[in-house]
Computed example of a mutant assay.
Amino acid sequence: MTDTTRPDPARAAAPERLKLALYSSRPAPADLGIGQVHFPEEHVVGVAPGTSAKVLRERCEASMVRHGYDRSPTMRTRLEEELRVVSTLGWPTYFL
């Protein structure tokens, strides 16, 4: 037999659970920023404003020398292509 004098905790929580279900079923905001670049700002990665592409190039070229790839025309061409794409997309800080 059930005790009807004490409220059922599950039943008491039902309105809150219903509110939560309704809130979580709402559509997401229309603008999620899709198509925009969301990478760290230049000051976060430690470079001066407007210099991230230049700094990335310098670091890549130094690494090419360190690994001996700077003597390969194929590798230099590939680096130029990759840096052009990264710069065009606005992603230099992602790679820094």
Rank of each mutant, 00 (worst) to 15 (best):
M75I: 06
E16G: 05
S72V: 09
A10T: 15
L89S: 07
P7Q: 08
A48F: 02
T74I: 11
A13H: 04
Y23F: 15
Y69C: 07
Y94T: 03
E82V: 14
E58A: 05
H38F: 12
V44G: 01
G35W: 11
A53D: 06
P9Q: 01
V55G: 00
K54N: 07
V55I: 08
L79H: 05
V37I: 10
S52R: 05
A62W: 03
T77P: 03
A53R: 00
K19Q: 15
R17G: 08
P73K: 13
L22G: 12
R26T: 15
D8L: 03
T77E: 15
T2G: 03
L83V: 00
A48T: 06
P27C: 10
L20R: 08
R59Y: 02
F95E: 03
V37P: 01
L18I: 11
P29I: 09
T4A: 05
Y69G: 07
L79Y: 04
A30F: 15
P15R: 06
E16W: 06
G50I: 07
A14N: 03
V65K: 14
R26M: 15
H67P: 01
T77C: 07
D8E: 10
T93G: 02
T88Q: 11
T88M: 14
V86M: 06
T5Y: 04
D31E: 12
G35N: 01
K54P: 01
E81V: 12
T5C: 02
H43V: 10
Q36V: 08
S87Q: 13
I34T: 02
R71P: 04
A28E: 15
R71G: 07
P92R: 03
G68D: 05
W91P: 05
R57P: 00
L22A: 11
H67L: 11
E58Q: 08
V47A: 03
